[in-house]
């Protein structure tokens, strides 16, 4: 019967397809794949201790530590533009809002789940803190907050610091702070929430 031969061919093709996976899974590591070769089981290797990649030495104290002459600075290492503020808002909402809340009052969802409440950004101590302080806390952590150096790149940490400053201003702003020609917008419906 012709169908039985066809069946045999089709079936053996199916088996062939099932057996050969070499090219699906090539002998190389995918990012973060486990390894049996290295003692710690990690295919992705960490940097050797006390080494710095060429061009990656962090000499700029202002940019990388938020300090000038060993003191936390109140100036930004980059111009604060609209783009920086927008980036700061976006990154704040991703990385900070879970605890600090979107307005910085320290009542984010993770706090509502039981994490120790952080101080409000609108407290006197934090309102008067230099911007370098916010960069420093993001970089090194503070109290219950772990550092965000691995999750947030340097430029973003500064953008977040700038946005925190804006949040602080926002909570104490008066109508007088709004340019007269734009005051009408205050009564307009709120724009769609930025993400």
């Amino acid at each position: 019967m012709p169908s039985s031969r066809l069946l045999l061919i089709v079936a053996s093709c199916a088996f062939l397809a099932a057996c050969r996976q070499d090219m699906h899974d090539a002998p190389r590591y995918e990012p973060l794949e486990a390894s049996t070769f290295f003692a710690d089981g990690r295919g992705s290797r960490t940097l050797v201790a006390n080494t710095v990649a060429r061009g990656m030495l962090r000499e700029d104290e202002h940019l990388y530590q938020g300090k000038v002459d060993g003191q936390l600075t109140d100036t930004f290492p980059m111009p604060v533009t609209t783009e920086v503020m927008a980036r700061g808002r976006e990154r704040f909402n991703v990385f900070c809002a879970p605890c600090h809340g979107r307005t910085g009052q320290g009542n984010g969802m993770v706090v509502q789940r039981g994490f120790r409440a952080p101080p409000s950004f609108h407290d006197e101590r934090l309102r008067t803190a230099p911007v370098g302080y916010f960069y420093d806390v993001q970089t090194n952590g503070f109290g219950a907050m772990s550092d965000y150096a691995a999750q947030v790149p340097v430029a973003d940490r500064w953008a977040i610091a700038a946005y925190i400053r804006a949040l602080q201003f926002s909570q104490r702003a008066t109508v007088g702070d709004v340019p007269p020609e734009r005051r009408a917008e205050l009564d307009a419906p709120a724009p769609q929430e930025a993400r």
Partner: peptide, 30 residues
């Protein structure tokens, strides 16, 4: 947000699986 843990999704071919430290950011207390 997705990016809180999958930090490299916007900049890399690989979205990134968070290191255990990211879990501990919250689960050190919760």
């Amino acid at each position: 947000d997705c990016r809180y843990c999958h930090t490299s999704v916007e900049t890399s071919s690989f979205a990134g699986i968070p290191p255990t430290k990211t879990c501990m950011n919250c689960h050190s207390q919760i």
